[in-house]
Write a protein that binds this DNA or RNA. Structure first.
Length: 543
DNA sequence: AACGGAGTCAACCGCATTAAT
DNA sequence: AATTAATGCGGTTGACTCCGT
């Protein structure tokens, strides 16, 4: 498509031919350099001709001189871009050939969003073209629920990267970039997971990454002002919600800077993993700590709060491995039939690879980063006896606080009640239905059926003491004894819950509340917290 | 035919890097 | 060494087109 040949241009063209466009021309905007108002918007053929003529005379470069010497009212950047993308000779126009597409895929699997570098392999193409193609392709495949890379490309890229460790075909940055966060969208290629699933022990990732323990990630990466050591250097704070803003939060959306996480053993990072969630009621729901929106929530799954209505940012997320129907859920949890209504998750889950995370507290199943993170977080939590009172304000029963004699909620959840779409392996529904200890007893204790629909829910003991010596505090949370009441209430609809969760998830929970037989007070809400719900519950005062 | 959503593409913007002074 | 300008790069935006309803 060319914007240089159209009706509006024709009108402009005649104007150009007579004189350069007047400032009040629609495509002129306010930017000015040295008192000269520069034009923006589509180029006209006249402008193209001027630019081409200029380049013929003076060669490429010194683009800022174009405006001065040729009278073209375009900034240097615009001239350069126009020349590079449209005017320079030997440009290959038209659709990408099959070979080119294949090459782009392979290159992307190897080097990520290095469009300019890809150009070297695709003569006649521009980085912009490649980028557009890729972005379009991403959307298309995401919509179709297809993996971003064909499996063979995964393997090929994997091998290539392993070789590149030695051959330096791609620098380490690229490798890291490649392995961790593909492209702008923080996409993680399938082969990471494939490989992870395949190895579970053998190092298949670049050493620089495989050596990253969750602890180190938490304490050095997430919890230090060094920022995210495993993030690509090219990552900029995204404008839209995405996984990493959602996950590690606070980068750019008004949340506390990472420095604030340095203390307290990354409590705030640990929290989302079920350890605690001292949520401070905030009327601004959208400022919910994104890291609280992780486990089992759709927000985690697609980096957004919406369940099946991803905000635009969601488009950028993709975890190809989880798009495979045959996904070996060993890395996420055991396979089990998708849960009703909650499984229709946007298929983009992502998680840094952790195939060979070595730590002192390797997760029981070694099933994936989240599990490992969780497990390690448990360790961190358990060793941190002085968990702040603040965190105790949460009514979360963190995994790490679950008595050792008690089946580990998280672990068991992943292993036995795996939600194919949840890194935890247990969806919110599964938590509700399976891990809602009645009357605060063991997780193993079968839920009492009498707690189903009635109101005879045993209230949580007000003075309940928790393993760490602290007391749960109801604080400002809603005094709903039952989440089913909560979800089914008008309040739930009338408050921001629905907004926060998205209509779909909202209805999911309502459905859940109506159908589950294991709801009880306290623990249920804990589960809610654990699944990102408590933040919702806590943030509003009783109506 | 009108409308709306999705796809495509060109161009812009902001930041990073490099070169020049 | 510090500053400024030029350039490169990647992400995003907005206009346009296509297509289905």
């Amino acid at each position: 498509m060319s914007h240089t040949i159209n009706e509006s241009e024709d009108g402009m063209l005649s104007k150009d031919q007579m004189d350069l466009p007047s400032i009040d021309e629609g495509s002129w905007r306010g930017s000015s350099v040295g008192g000269v108002v520069l034009k923006k918007g589509p180029w006209t053929s006249t402008e193209d001709a001027i630019l081409v003529e200029y380049v013929k005379k003076h060669g490429e470069g010194n683009w800022n001189a174009v405006q001065k010497q040729s009278g073209l009212f375009r900034c240097g950047k615009s001239c350069r871009l126009r020349w590079a993308n449209h005017l320079r000779p030997n440009l290959k126009k038209g659709a990408f050939t099959v070979d080119e597409e294949r090459l782009i895929i392979e290159l992307h699997a190897k080097i990520g969003n290095k469009w300019a570098r890809m150009v070297a392999h695709l003569p006649g193409r521009t980085d912009n073209e490649i980028k557009n193609y890729w972005n379009t392709r991403i959307k298309r495949r995401q919509r179709a629920g297809l993996p971003l890379y064909p499996p063979d490309v995964h393997l090929q890229a994997l091998n290539g990267n392993q070789q590149s460790q030695n051959t330096s075909e791609f620098n380490s940055e690229d490798s890291q970039h490649h392995y961790f966060l593909q492209e702008n969208n923080y996409e993680i290629p399938d082969f990471i997971f494939d490989n992870f699933k395949a190895t579970h022990g053998a190092l298949s990732y670049p050493a620089t990454l495989t050596d990253i323990s969750v602890s180190s990630m938490l304490t050095q990466g997430l919890c230090s002002s060094q920022t995210y050591s495993f993030m690509p250097s090219t990552m900029h704070p995204p404008k839209s919600e995405n996984f990493f803003t959602g996950f590690y939060g606070s980068v750019s959306n008004g949340l506390p800077p990472l420095d604030e996480f340095q203390n307290d053993i990354c409590e705030k990072i640990v929290r989302p993993f079920g350890l605690s969630f001292p949520y401070d009621p905030d009327p601004n729901i959208m400022n919910l700590p994104p890291y609280g929106a992780i486990l089992g929530s759709h927000a985690f799954l697609n980096g957004n709060f919406s369940a099946s209505k991803p905000i635009p940012g969601a488009v950028k997320l993709e975890l190809p491995s989880l798009q495979y129907p045959e996904t070996d859920l060993g890395s996420w949890g055991s396979s089990s039939p998708p849960l009703h209504s909650l499984e229709s998750v946007d298929g983009f889950i992502q998680s840094p690879p952790t195939g060979s995370v070595h730590s002192d507290c390797l997760s029981p199943g070694n099933n994936g980063l989240l599990e490992t993170l969780l497990h390690e977080a448990q360790t961190l939590s358990s060793t941190k006896n002085n968990l702040s009172e603040k965190s105790l304000n949460s009514f979360v029963v963190p995994c790490g606080m679950v008595d050792s004699s008690t089946p580990n909620l998280c672990k068991r959840g992943w292993e036995e009640y795996g939600d194919p779409i949840s890194p935890l392996g247990c969806s919110t529904a599964s938590v509700f239905s399976e891990y809602t200890p009645i009357r605060g007893s063991s997780w193993d204790e079968p839920p009492a059926a009498d707690t189903l629909h009635g109101c005879n829910v045993k209230p949580e003991p007000a003075n309940q003491v928790y393993p760490d010596g602290g007391k749960k505090q109801k604080s400002t949370r809603l005094d709903f004894s039952r989440p089913d009441a909560l979800f089914g209430s008008d309040w739930f609809e009338q408050t921001q819950c629905a907004t926060l969760l998205g209509e779909d998830l909202c209805s999911d929970y309502k459905h859940l509340a109506a159908g589950t037989s294991t709801l009880s007070q306290g623990w249920v809400l804990d589960s809610c917290v654990w699944n990102n719900m408590p933040a919702v519950c806590q943030m509003s005062e009783l109506p």
